[in-house]
């Protein structure tokens, strides 16, 4: 299939395409801000106040706040990629198929 300029213009003006772009970009931006925020907050905390992460989670426990926070960022990364993949491969891809079906008829 070779797409034509007409097809492209039609897709670009299709309200469903605009909806797809708005939803997908909004979601991707939100998740990017979450992971960037979490990581740089973590790094800045280490740079400005490293002692804070050395405080035990419970008085007398060897486990410090740094452990759940560090492991938390690893789990958060995995979780966010899962959430995005699930929504993009379902909802967004269905929307994409609808948009494309318009020009592939």
């Amino acid at each position: 299939m070779q797409e034509t300029n007409d097809d492209i213009q039609r897709i670009y003006e299709d309200p469903r395409f605009k909806e797809l772009v708005a939803k997908k970009s909004g979601f991707a931006n939100l998740l990017s801000v979450i992971i960037l925020g979490a990581y740089f907050a973590f790094i800045l905390l280490i740079a400005f106040d490293p002692k804070l992460l050395g405080i035990p989670v419970v008085e007398g426990s060897p486990i410090t706040w740094g452990i759940p926070m560090g492991v938390g960022i690893i789990l958060l990364s995995f979780l966010l990629t899962g959430v995005y993949t699930l929504r993009a491969n379902g909802e967004f891809d269905n929307l994409t198929k609808e948009v494309l079906s318009e020009v592939q008829k």
Partner: peptide
């Protein structure tokens, strides 16, 4: 390790 991991979600999103 965390530094080496956090680039991945970003690669996916953008």
């Amino acid at each position: 390790s965390i530094g080496f991991l956090v680039g991945w979600p970003l690669i996916l999103f953008i």
